[in-house]
Simulated assay, not measured.
Amino acid sequence: MRYGARNQIPAKVTSVKKGDVMTQVNFSVDVPHAMASVLTTESVEDLALAPGDAVLLVVKAIHVVPVKE
């Protein structure tokens, strides 16, 4: 997959808080910080994101886009 965002951060899913329409996914990253992303619940289900999954966080402007490889 190709995309225009250059900031890519390896991360691990730490929690998934599902809602009816939107879902918050929290991540741990190598540096001592944490990041979060809010996605539609449908997108989280399509990616099958679950705690412990390794992902690549692609950051462009204000968006954090998890890419599951």
Rank of each mutant, 00 (worst) to 15 (best):
Arg2Tyr: 03
Glu42Trp: 03
His63Leu: 15
Asp30Glu: 15
Ser43Gln: 11
Pro10His: 08
Ala48Lys: 13
Pro66Cys: 06
Val59Gln: 10
Val64Asn: 09
Asp53Ser: 05
Leu56Gln: 12
Met22Phe: 07
Gly19Ser: 02
Ile62Glu: 15
Asn26Ser: 15
Val65Gln: 13
Gly19Trp: 02
Ser43Ile: 07
Gly4Leu: 06
Phe27Pro: 03
Tyr3Ala: 05
Phe27Ala: 05
Ser37Ala: 15
Asp53Lys: 00
Val67Cys: 11
Leu47Glu: 05
Lys18Gly: 08
Asp20Arg: 01
Ala36Lys: 11
Lys60Tyr: 08
Leu49His: 01
Glu42Met: 03
Ala54Lys: 12
Glu45Asp: 14
Asn7Phe: 04
His33Ala: 15
Arg2Met: 04
Val16His: 03
Arg2Leu: 06
Ile62Val: 12
Gln8Asn: 02
Ala34Asp: 13
Gln24Val: 14
His33Gly: 12
Ala50His: 13
Ala50Lys: 14
Ser37Met: 08
Arg6Gln: 01
Pro10Asp: 09
Thr14Lys: 07
Ala48Phe: 12
Met35Thr: 10
Val31Asp: 14
Pro10Glu: 09
Lys60Ser: 11
His33Tyr: 14
Ala50Trp: 10
Tyr3Gly: 08
Lys17Tyr: 10
Val16Gly: 01
Val21Asn: 03
Lys17Leu: 14
Met22Gln: 07
Glu45Ser: 11
Pro10Arg: 06
Gly19Thr: 02
Arg6Asp: 04
Gly52Lys: 10
His63Gln: 15
Phe27Leu: 09
Val38Leu: 12
Ala11Leu: 04
Pro51Val: 06
Ile9Tyr: 00
